[in-house]
Structure formats: structure tokens, C-alpha cells
Computed example of a mutant assay.
Amino acid sequence: MELTGVFVPMITPFDESGAVAFPALERLAHEVLDAGATGLVALGTTGEPSALTAGERDGVVAVLARVCAAHAAPLIGPPGEGVTAALSLVPPFVRPGPDGVLAHFTALAASSPVPLVVYHVPHRTGQPLDAGTLRRIAGLDRVIGIKYATGALDADAIALLADPPPGFAFLSGDDLFLSPLLALGAAGGILASAHLATDRFVALTRAWHSGDLGAARKLGHALAPLSAALFAEPNPAVIKAVLHAQGRIPTPSVRLPLLPASAAALDAALRHAT
């Protein structure tokens, strides 16, 4: 499995009764793949998995697996039928240290039915990892990539991209830093913002990969304000509000502990979404 291009971590839309709107999810998944996304991510943070029942989570994965199969596209998500690779979070809260994280992924890779994509998001997990540790994790058999979301364009990302491990894909997990990370050699991104302007995020990625620097810089500068606006309030509230305003999902609802996007955040995002 080659991890390159734009992967969209799908929202979970809800209908007027509060139930998961599976038909809307299916339509939205087809839309982003038709617009050029490489693949989808099921039940990432953007999908509000902790607020879903086990049955709802199973239903989301089944819908996205069916859509991906129809497009011959990869699905990243929890291991199961139709899932190509597992998005695996660095162990949160316990802060086991670099050697503990390495041991965790060693054991997980040995038991997983699918390859792993490491999700490194230290502001959520509380566990920082330097480039040397990430390189050790990248060397594990069946670890094929990383979603890198440190909230900064930092020295560890630069060091990792300066000498990337063979067969290991560096994917931006911070939408705002997609363009500079692509310029440094990233393979692509897992981008909640790409629910919107999917084709432009795809074009940005292709422009950097093809060496069209003028187009890449122009697109990067144009898309950064959209990503900033979509993350102005806790994700995915603003994304859902915009998708609802565009008539693509039946409600803008999120589940607690998230709250709906404010009118000001929606207005600001809509200005950049056209």
C-alpha cells in the first residue's frame, strides 16, 4: 500500500433525530473520492468515535469500506473488514517514554492484521517523540507511515524528512502545515479540511510532487486561511456547519462534549470555502 496524496478523515453526520445519517456519509465519501482524494480515514478524531456506540462505529466503517471498494481506494481505520491500514495512536495519557512507545508499536505491529500508520499528536497524548525515536518506530516491520500532528513545523519533522526511512510515508496531520511539509518532502496529508475544496488540496499535493512551485505556493497560500477557519473552534464543529450550509449533510450537529460551531466561525469559514 502506497500512502501518498490526500486522505480525508470522515466526519460522522447526524440526522434530525440525532442518529447517524449513513446515506449522507456515503454520499460525502463518494464526493471526496470523486474529487481526487486518494483514500479515506474511518473513525479518526474528526469522526467523533468516542461519542458513537459500538454499533454506530461498525456501521460507519462498513459504509466507508463499501465506498472505498467501489473506488478501489484505501481505507485507513480500525482493523476490520475492508480496512487497508490501521491508524494507531501513540499511547495516550500514560506517557510511557520513547522506549515504551517503541515496545508498544513493536507488539501492535506483530499482532495487527493490517499495516500500521502511527498517529503522533503529542498535545493530545502527552507523549513527545524526537526524530530518532520516530525513525526507530519507522523501522519496524509493517509500520508504513505516520500522521504527524505536533502543531508546529518543528525540527523533528525537518530531520525526519531530510532523510526519510525507506517505505515510510510522512503524512501531515496539521492541515495548516500541509504546504510547507509537502515542500520538505511529505507524501501527503490526512486532512479534515479536505472535506471542502477537495480538488484544490489534491492539486496542491500534486503541484509540490511534480515540482510546479508557482502553482504549489499559490494554492498553499490560498488554502491555509480555509484550514485556519475550519479549526477556529473544536474539530469537527466548523466543518460540519459548513457542510450543512452547503446542503451536503442534514444537520450541523455534533455530540457532547463538543458544541455546535458559532455563527461567527461559520461565517468566517464560508468566506474561505468558496
Results as ranks from 00 to 15, higher is better:
98 P>V: 09
99 D>K: 13
99 D>Y: 02
102 L>H: 15
103 A>H: 14
103 A>G: 07
104 H>P: 06
105 F>D: 11
106 T>D: 15
106 T>I: 12
106 T>K: 12
108 L>T: 04
109 A>P: 15
111 S>I: 09
112 S>V: 14
119 Y>K: 00
122 P>H: 04
124 R>N: 13
127 Q>H: 08
129 L>T: 06
129 L>F: 04
132 G>F: 01
136 R>W: 09
136 R>Q: 14
136 R>Y: 09
140 L>H: 07
140 L>E: 01
140 L>V: 11
140 L>I: 14
140 L>N: 03
141 D>T: 07
142 R>I: 03
142 R>F: 04
149 A>C: 04
149 A>L: 00
150 T>A: 12
150 T>W: 01
150 T>F: 00
151 G>E: 11
151 G>S: 11
152 A>F: 04
153 L>H: 07
155 A>L: 13
157 A>S: 13
157 A>P: 06
158 I>S: 01
159 A>M: 05
160 L>P: 03
161 L>V: 10
161 L>Q: 08
165 P>W: 03
165 P>S: 13
168 F>G: 01
170 F>E: 02
172 S>C: 13
172 S>P: 05
174 D>A: 00
174 D>F: 00
174 D>L: 01
176 L>I: 06
176 L>Y: 05
176 L>E: 11
177 F>Q: 13
177 F>M: 11
177 F>P: 04
179 S>M: 08
179 S>D: 12
179 S>I: 01
183 A>H: 01
184 L>E: 01
185 G>P: 13
186 A>W: 00
189 G>Q: 07
190 I>N: 00
190 I>L: 12
191 L>V: 12
192 A>G: 09
192 A>C: 08
192 A>S: 13
196 L>R: 06
198 T>E: 05
198 T>A: 06
200 R>D: 12
201 F>W: 14
201 F>H: 12
202 V>S: 10
203 A>K: 10
204 L>C: 03
205 T>G: 08
208 W>S: 04
210 S>C: 12
210 S>R: 14
210 S>H: 09
211 G>P: 07
213 L>R: 15
215 A>Y: 06
215 A>G: 12
215 A>P: 10
216 A>R: 00
217 R>C: 10
217 R>Q: 11
217 R>V: 14
218 K>G: 03
219 L>P: 03
221 H>W: 07
223 L>K: 15
224 A>I: 12
224 A>C: 13
